[in-house]
Simulated scan of single mutants.
Amino acid sequence: MQGQKQGFFEQPHAATYLLIALNVAVFGMMTLRTGAAAPAGRDLWQAGALYPLVLPRGEYWRLVAHGFLHANPMHLFTNMLCLALWGGHLERRVGATYFIVIYAIALLAGGFVSLATHHGPYLSVGASGAVSGVLGALFCLWILGKVELGASFFIINIGLNITLSLSTRGVDWGAHLGGFTAGLVACAVIDLIERGNARVFACKFPEGLKLNVLILAVVGPMAAAPFAPPIPATPAAFALAAGIVLLALTVAVKAIDLVLTRRHGLAIAAFILALPNTVAALAIFDRLAETICAASGNAPALAALCSHAGLLPTLGAAAMLALSLGLSTRSIAKGVTDLGFVAPGLRGERRRRLGL
């Protein structure tokens, strides 16, 4: 282990810490809700565990929810330990945005494979599929020669994963296998996309802007859904809607790319992205205002806000604007003080790196 080019252990980074914090927080809330460190099966089912009728009943939200639930403290500890050990390496290499994308794809794929490989009554919870996807993505990078980890790293970790899946009672081997495979494939596809981006985009996007675009790509259609015309429930209609969203996203990303090629473009791009962030927050708070106000109970401050129509969405949008600009402070400062070096640097970084 000491002879490897890259250490066996890597300190986790921001997205890894965030995912660990979310999993621990959900486990803590479940413990407080149930009064037990090991929630009963009924409690896990109510919170979002996978079970055989997920797809026939259209309960697709469980494909995400189950990945943040854990059966007991040891289950949580082992998954978070693996996420910390593997996530640090992957996030360091691909960045927070692609790390989150790979994690999400592996989580969904692990859930689908789990459903496909189980027959009869069962419940499945845990981040195992998503965490296995992180290891699969690292293995893909090693095959591509794009991560400096020795073969012993994968022999030990993949071997332990297989041994645990096959020898321990109650482990969902389908989720492990599906997540690992999805992580490997997703990483390979992202590498191909990045190779194609070298021909389409002039600049390498800073990680903050890239993550902001990803969030808008997910949240934007959800915020705009109530204002869009109804979509017929046919595969062709859904494919057309998805194509329109993808085209709009591509045009928006290319527009930001063109902005980044100009002097002070980094600051301009940060201000531009703050606008759709604010509009999306306004739409979401407008949709949730009635629910939030109904649940305000005896909170006087919230009740006072709810007594004025439109005040809660406006304050939510203002808070999002302040948050967007606050998180972009470094990018804005770097862009404002740009003397002609930032844009050439971003273009040079795109040319220097092919793929991930």
Rank of each mutant, 00 (worst) to 15 (best):
A223Q: 12
A224V: 14
P226I: 13
F227A: 14
F227V: 11
F227K: 02
A228V: 11
A228I: 12
P229C: 05
P232H: 12
P232L: 11
P232Y: 06
A233C: 04
P235S: 10
P235K: 07
A236E: 15
A236T: 15
A237R: 04
F238D: 06
A241L: 08
A242H: 01
A242R: 01
G243A: 12
G243V: 02
G243W: 09
I244K: 04
I244L: 10
L246K: 06
L246C: 13
A248V: 13
A248G: 06
A248W: 02
L249M: 01
L249C: 10
T250L: 11
V251E: 01
A252K: 04
V253M: 12
V253P: 04
A255R: 06
A255T: 14
D257A: 06
L260A: 04
L260F: 03
L260N: 03
T261W: 01
R262N: 10
R262W: 05
R263G: 04
H264R: 13
H264F: 13
H264T: 13
G265F: 03
L266D: 06
L266P: 00
L266G: 00
L266T: 09
I268V: 15
A269M: 02
A269V: 02
A269C: 01
A270C: 07
F271H: 10
F271I: 14
L273I: 15
A274Q: 00
A274V: 01
L275N: 04
L275E: 10
L275V: 15
L275F: 15
L275P: 03
P276C: 03
P276R: 05
N277T: 12
T278S: 07
V279R: 07
V279Y: 00
A280Y: 00
A280T: 14
L282S: 10
A283Q: 06
D286S: 15
D286A: 05
L288N: 05
L288H: 07
E290F: 08
E290G: 11
T291N: 10
T291V: 14
I292W: 05
C293D: 13
A295T: 00
A295I: 00
A295N: 14
S296P: 04
S296V: 01
G297C: 09
G297S: 12
A299Y: 05
P300W: 06
A301C: 07
A301R: 04
L302S: 09
L302G: 07
A303M: 11
A304E: 11
L305N: 09
A309Q: 12
A309P: 01
G310A: 09
L311P: 08
L312R: 02
L312W: 01
T314Q: 04
T314H: 02
L315V: 15
L315A: 09
G316V: 03
A317L: 00
A317G: 02
A317T: 10
A317K: 05
A319E: 05
A319K: 04
M320K: 07
L321A: 15
L321Q: 03
A322R: 00
S324I: 00
L325V: 15
L325G: 02
G326V: 08
G326H: 05
L327M: 13
S331G: 12
S331F: 10
I332A: 02
